[in-house]
Nucleic acid binder design. Sequence first.
DNA 1: AATCCACAGGAAGCCCGGGAAC
DNA 2: GTTCCCGGGCTTCCTGTGGATT
Length: 426
Amino acid sequence: MSSEGLFGMLLETRPIFKNREYLRPSYTPEELPHRDEQIHQLARILAAPLRGETPSNIFIYGKTGTGKTASVKYVAKELERVSDRAPLKVEVIYLNCEVVNTQYRILATLSDTFLKKLKNGRGKEYLNSLGLPERVPMTGWPTDEVYRSFFVALDQERQLAVIILDEIDKLVQKSGDEVLYNLTRMNSDLKNAKVTIVGISNDTNFMEYLDPRVRSSLSEEELVFPTYNGLQLKDILEKRAEISFVEGALGNGVIQLCAAHAAREHGDARRALDLLRVSGELAERMGADVVTVDHVRYAYEKIEQDSMVEVIKTLPTQSKLVLYSIVLLMERTPRRVVSGEVYGLYQELCRHNGLEMLTQRRVSDLVSELDMLGIISARIVNKGRYGRTKEIKLNIHPTQARAAMQGDYYISAIDVLALPRQLTLA
DNA sequence: AATCCACAGGAAGCCCGGGAAC
DNA sequence: GTTCCCGGGCTTCCTGTGGATT
């Protein structure tokens, strides 16, 4: 270690990032390149009620990383900003249905928002006089009571409630469409206030499960967010890089390469930004003061491996066991491994560790699954007289795979030394 | 040309847990 | 609470495969 000590190197090199937060998915950018059209449409639809027209509900569809959430949040923010001067006050409520995924919790959150607003505006006594509580408990109330308190609290003022339901497919999947039915009908009963629902999803199939009335009302206006192409991604990355990286910290071709990778994988901007950030972090860690295309390549590998580790961790025990057999064989003799060997070792592992043993047929399916997940690559080979088999290649480093599986109770308990010698030393 | 290996992978059916319907 | 149904995991049984070997 150098005389400067532990942090010497880190302090000496020029920093790479100005602010890496701008590269994270949680950041909502000031401008969204190549989404002007969608943003204008969205603004036009949402502004209509301000001019006294009946509000339309909006359904937004687009693959992940196409800027749906960012665009909606951006428009919502602008709308709230101008609503002071508008004839109708606007209140935007953003709900991610992956988190808030039941009818009760949605209504409770909406209730609370407007109860709080009312209390701040007119005081506790006013709430009491309407028979409204200060807050709705997290659980316990009958759902229609929660609905009523939301309704009454909302209708006390002339206002427009823009309810954004992100990942709305998750909601329908988990709790059905009853909430949506109630929310879409509200406008006909409200006297002062109006409600607009903005549903966001990356999956249109769920629409089929909706009540036809809900479906048509939810998609009064539809907006599609197409995926970005390579050039557009490059643009987006450049804009972001400007504010997040130190000037001159990005080498030639870095952005192009990140954009190209992401474009190849369905134009997901989130992935592209991730790749750029990880590349920077890697360069930083390696003590470089410029990010190069090599860092990007390395980062790409790292992201791939990391996601694979995640997949492995969530595998069922039997699949892990099969994978573990492949890993063991691979560690001994780094070559292609055939299915017969895998099943043989798998059997031994089960036998010597008191684990349930599956049939060859089933293990063959598990191997195919591992192949589908990209953890291994398998191909069928005919060896003539010596039969027909599957050659298996591991797509992740054996030590990484091992580490990913150690968390599993059954796997960590496996005692390799208990195996017959010819198997462990083959 | 016939044989045969060592599996792949399709078909049918069993079992079990969980959710909907009664 | 019971019954019914469904889907996923699994087994059993089976047919198919293509080139080295006989």
